[in-house]
Computed example of a mutant assay.
Amino acid sequence: MRGEFLSASADETREYARRFAAGLQPGDVVCLTGNLGVGKTEFMRGITEAFGCEEQLSSPTFSLMNIYEGLMRGRPVELHHFDLYRLESEKELDSAGFDDYLSGPFLSVVEWGERFSSLERRYTRRVELFIAGESQRKIVIT
């Protein structure tokens, strides 16, 4: 799923995320970007719903990463959810072994990944969220 979409509610944002997630494959690394309060958590919630692991969802802001167990087309899948908001440097990424976590048969979603240009080569998909009105969000998927 690629393109621009307009969401008028958190429910619609989650629905777009579920549709997006249906096209993901093991090994995909998604860069999820947008300002604070734009709906990244709702989009992530939709992804976890698609894989049946929504009850595990919590913000990784203070722990850098959460790992969720779910199902993809009836098979077990591991979803890595990163939040790089609090990291200051590439050195912190390296010391956390971040690159290793992006390798392998996992699905990875990286919030605030645009902050580190060295990661650009790792992303297979990009989702950008923008405020498009008081209760509307524009979602751009590339």
Rank of each mutant, 00 (worst) to 15 (best):
F62M: 09
M72H: 15
D83M: 00
R73H: 14
S95H: 11
R73D: 15
L64G: 08
T61E: 07
S58K: 11
G97M: 04
E78M: 14
M65Q: 11
L64F: 12
L57Q: 13
M72S: 15
I67G: 09
P60W: 07
D94N: 05
L57P: 13
L84Q: 10
Y85M: 04
L71V: 12
H80L: 09
G97N: 06
L87S: 08
D83P: 01
L87G: 12
G70F: 01
L93F: 07
H80W: 10
K91P: 00
L71N: 10
I67V: 15
T61D: 05
S95R: 14
T61W: 05
E88S: 14
P76L: 06
L87H: 07
S89G: 13
Y85P: 08
G70P: 02
M65H: 04
L64E: 02
L79R: 04
D94I: 01
E92N: 07
E90I: 02
S89K: 14
M72L: 14
F82D: 03
F62S: 10
G70S: 01
L84C: 06
L84I: 04
I67W: 01
V77C: 13
F62L: 08
R86W: 06
M65G: 05
L87P: 11
H80C: 08
E69W: 06
G74W: 03
G70A: 02
V77W: 10
E78A: 13
A96G: 00
H81W: 13
N66L: 08
S59K: 04
S58Y: 02
A96H: 02
E92C: 04
Y68I: 05
E92A: 09
S95P: 00
F82H: 08
S59F: 04
D94G: 03
S58N: 11
V77T: 11
E92W: 05
E78G: 04
R86V: 03
S59E: 01
A96E: 01
S89E: 14
L93R: 09
E78T: 15
D83W: 00
L84E: 11
G97C: 05
Y68A: 10
L93D: 09
E88G: 15
E90M: 00
P76R: 12
S63V: 15
F62K: 08
S89Y: 13
L84A: 10
R86H: 06
M72A: 15
E90S: 13
E92G: 08
E90F: 02
E90D: 14
S89M: 12
H81N: 13
K91E: 15
S89A: 14
L93H: 10
R73C: 03
S63I: 12
Y85D: 05
L64C: 02
T61Q: 10
M65N: 05
L79C: 11
K91M: 09
G97L: 05
L84S: 10
N66M: 10
K91A: 15
N66V: 00
A96K: 01
P76V: 03
L71H: 14
S58P: 01
R86A: 06
R73L: 05
